[in-house]
């Protein structure tokens, strides 16, 4: 089983690097979908098949389709000159080095912590559902309020305002 984890991990990391370094937005989004599918395989290997299905259906299915829809609607294929100037090595090398330092810090922190595993039974989706609607019921309701606010906000932001002029000035 372990070899599947490493294969999926390498696929996820390589496709994520391709996604953040690409020039063409659509190609990068397709690489990102590949990365999400690889992470979904890892969820399955971690004995969370329900979450793996949610990852494919919601992340790779719904959210990425929204991205691709907006990208195609705005018709932004190849980037403009301004960003090409920003992608010179002297511009991205310092943020990358700082982030790499943070990553080394995290590696050292993880290596120095001892963790003890719990029981031996895998988690069933039924347990997740029971926990979601008993212990975390308040969280579910807050998430519902958040989704409602998101729907209203996206509708408000997405609607094109009509330019209102005086009716006598309106050009027929």
């Amino acid at each position: 089983m372990d070899v599947f984890f490493y294969i999926a991990g390498v696929v996820a990391i390589v496709s994520t690097i391709m996604a953040i370094s690409g020039r063409n937005a659509i190609h990068s989004l397709l690489y990102l979908i590949l990365s999400l599918l690889a992470v979904s395989v890892i969820f399955y290997l971690l004995s969370a098949p329900f979450i793996a299905a949610l990852e494919v259906i919601i992340y790779a299915g719904a959210i990425m389709v929204l991205f691709i829809f907006v990208t195609m609607m705005l018709n932004i294929g190849i980037e403009r000159e301004a960003e090409k100037k920003w992608l010179q090595p002297r511009m991205w090398i310092i943020p990358s080095i700082l982030a790499a330092i943070l990553l080394v810090n995290l590696i050292l922190a993880v290596k120095s912590v001892q963790v003890i595993p719990g029981g031996s039974k895998a988690i069933q989706p039924k347990q997740v559902g029971i926990s979601l609607f008993s212990t975390y019921l308040l969280g579910v309701e807050i998430a519902a309020i958040l989704l409602m606010a998101g729907v209203i906000g996206a509708y408000h932001l997405g609607s094109q305002k009509k330019k209102v002029k005086h009716r006598f000035l309106e050009i027929k």
């Binding site: 969370a48 719990g118 031996s120 988690i123 347990q127 997740v128």
Partner: peptide, 10 residues
């Protein structure tokens, strides 16, 4: 998964 608790998936 490590601690066998459903809270992570929630």
């Amino acid at each position: 998964t490590h601690w066998r608790q459903p809270d992570g998936q929630v």
